[in-house]
Every structure is written in structure tokens, then in C-alpha cells.
Amino acid sequence: MNKKSTLKFGVAILTLICAFCAMNFALAKPSNVPLDADSAVIRTYFAPLGPNHQPSKTKQKNFQCSEQIFKVLELSEYPAGKHDLAVKWIDPSRNVREHTQYSFGVSDSGQTKLWAWLELAPAAGSSLIAWMNPAAGLEEFIGTWDVEVKINNRMVSKRQFEVIC
């Protein structure tokens, strides 16, 4: 290999290295770029009541009529700032029973934990016959419920849980 060929080979290698570095630089996500809701990680689950009025860390899908039913959202890599949460609780007859809505803040960490909860109360007079039938006055709640969660008007979760009295 003469000097000219060696030089050409060196230039070619250098060009390849530069191209590789440029590609890596272009693909790398700079740390100061604001987080995007599209790339956020959203984990949702149902849980019963835990300590300190918070939802338990134990997931649960079947609930007794007397239990508080928590829908929990764990957000990470979420854009900092103000966001709007909307949770629709749809009963077994496909009626929207509750609509929980509130604004929440996310700090620069991009992480937060949110929840909404539902409590069922029996029909009037049912306490008198509850000794015969614990599900008295709660029949309409027994079955599969749907819960739809939207953040900033965008659907992020649609899951089901069961009420078993």
C-alpha cells in the first residue's frame, strides 16, 4: 500500500468515525429538552384503602361493596407544570355514576402519583334488612365497572374492576 492509498484509507476511516459520532449525537436525548407527554410512562391500577388515607400499594381488581375503590396513576417522565385529570366511573348498567375532575402539578422530577376514589352507599332502608342480605340496596353496583382516565383530555387508561358484595 503506497502513501496515497494509506491517506485515502485514513480519511475514509475518519469520515466513518465522524458519521458515527454525528449519528449518535443526533439520536441522543439532551437532558435539558422538556419531557413530552407522548413519551411519558403511565402506570395505572386499582387498589383498596391503605395507611394515611392513601391507596394501598397492593393492586386489587375485585372489591366488596363496603370498600373504598382507588384508581391510582403513577406518572414518570411526565412534563412539569399544570395538567388536568378526569376520571369517569361507569357502573355495570353502563351509566356514568361519577366524574372526578381536578388539576394537578408535576414538579421537575417528572414523577407523581395521583388517585381518584369511589365509595358505594346502599339504598335507604336497606340497613334494616342487611342482616338477611348484606348486598341489599347495592344490587345495582354489583358487576363490572369501567373506569376511563383522561389527562389533558387525552385517554390514558380504560380498565375494569369488579364489585362483589
Partner: peptide, 22 residues
């Protein structure tokens, strides 16, 4: 009579739900 009233009340009324906001 109390049982009849209770059954009637239960049959004629519906349960309620609560989902409070912060």
C-alpha cells in the same frame, strides 16, 4: 310491617356513590 317497609324503601330507592375531589 317493618320488614315490608324496609323492602319497599330498598326497592323504591337507589344506592348512591361518592367520588370526592381535592
Amino acid at each position: 310491617l317493618a320488614l315490608v317497609i324496609a323492602f319497599t324503601m330498598t326497592a323504591c330507592s337507589s344506592g348512591t356513590t361518592v367520588s370526592p375531589e381535592p
